[in-house]
Computed example of a mutant assay.
Amino acid sequence: MFSGSIVALITPFNLDGEVDYVSLKKLVDYHVEAGTDGIVAVGTTGESATLTVEEHVKVVVKTVEFADGRIPVIAGTGANATHESVTFSRLLNNSGIAGCLSVTPYYNKPTQEGLFQHYKAIAEESDVPQILYNVPGRTAVDLFPETVARLSEIESIVALKDATGDLSRIAKHRELCGEDFILLSGDDSTGLDFVKAGGQGVISVTNNIAAKDMADMMKLALEGNFDEAAVINERLMTLHKNLFVESSPIPVKWAAHKMGLIAHGGLRLPLTELSDSARPVVAKSMTEACIY
């Protein structure tokens, strides 16, 4: 159901800080033309933490509208309050989304039982497949494989986005969750190795500005052509890393603006634009990756 190269889409803003829907449509068309396999709208890379509930829902709905059936859209529905994630799920029922992606609750550091109950509550309020998202480096909580296994028994929970960078977890997840459970990387630097070890794809930040390369690489990898895929990955590796030279999505929004994919590279506080010292680092990575 979910596989290949899926973009963790940025949310473009106008100079006044409002969502730029003209640029959003341009981004959707860019990914359709590049062969991207899916779009995550208003995930964490889409600055979900700083959008209002109304904006969050509207961006998802407009992304579905712009996609017009050409590419599946997954809605980011994560929050650190279960009731907020449940609200997103309810509001997006019957919206045309292909699924929901929910990050583990950040800051409040729930127990494993709390994580289980959190995701169970979300799944009970949604009419679409659910993707778990584990990124302990940003949330300060780790979703253990044993908890993923418990959650995988809930019919609508079908996948995990694993951004730990720990490739040893793939075999553990596969053993505990079975062959049908979908495993997606959330770490571009190890994404190809993740698929080589048995994953089905990557939800990618790099994809925002190197969409065709990421789509080609994942297609080759899923066909078993890992040597050819590795050639592309090696060219992108510095970019994978330097898009995190400052907190994401700061670097990737600057890069997308530089490429003309969005009209402005602005973010919402507390995030600020890419520093002068980091700009040459990202620009050099873009040149080395042959995308600019």
Rank of each mutant, 00 (worst) to 15 (best):
A215R: 00
S156R: 10
S102W: 02
K161H: 09
L222A: 10
K120G: 00
R235C: 08
G186A: 07
T206D: 08
I122F: 07
F116P: 04
G186L: 00
L101P: 00
A221Q: 06
V148Y: 03
D216R: 14
G191Q: 06
L222R: 13
L143E: 00
D180T: 11
M214A: 10
N108K: 10
E125F: 01
D213W: 09
T206N: 08
L151E: 05
A171Q: 14
L151H: 04
D142T: 14
L132R: 02
R235Q: 13
I203Q: 02
D166L: 10
P110D: 07
A140W: 13
V148Q: 01
V158H: 03
K172T: 14
R150Y: 02
N208G: 08
Q200H: 02
A140Q: 15
K109H: 10
E124Y: 03
I157L: 05
A221C: 08
L160V: 14
I203V: 15
K172H: 11
D187I: 00
P129K: 02
C177G: 07
Y133V: 01
D180G: 12
G201V: 05
D162S: 05
G191N: 07
N134P: 02
V135N: 03
M214H: 06
I131F: 08
T111S: 14
T190P: 06
E155D: 15
T190L: 12
N233R: 12
T111D: 00
I232V: 11
Q200A: 04
C177F: 12
P145R: 06
P105S: 10
E223H: 13
L183M: 12
L220G: 03
G165Y: 10
N225H: 15
P145N: 06
L115E: 02
K161Y: 08
R169W: 08
A159P: 02
Y107H: 11
D188Y: 04
F194C: 08
L183K: 00
F226G: 03
D166S: 12
I232P: 00
V128L: 07
T206Q: 05
I209V: 13
S152F: 06
G199N: 05
D193C: 13
L115R: 01
Q130Y: 12
R174C: 13
S156Q: 09
G114I: 01
I203F: 08
G165C: 07
D193A: 14
V141I: 15
D188Q: 09
L101E: 01
S126Y: 11
S126H: 09
E179P: 09
P105C: 09
K161N: 07
I232G: 03
V195Y: 03
R150K: 14
V195D: 09
C177Y: 11
E153H: 14
D216I: 10
L176H: 07
K161C: 01
D227K: 15
F194P: 03
S126L: 12
E113M: 10
I209Q: 05
S102A: 12
G201M: 06
V231W: 08
E125H: 12
S156K: 12
K219Q: 12
L160M: 11
K120P: 00
Q112E: 00
E113K: 11
G199W: 06
V231D: 14
Q112T: 04
V195H: 04
D216S: 13
N134Q: 08
E228G: 03
K172F: 05
F226V: 07
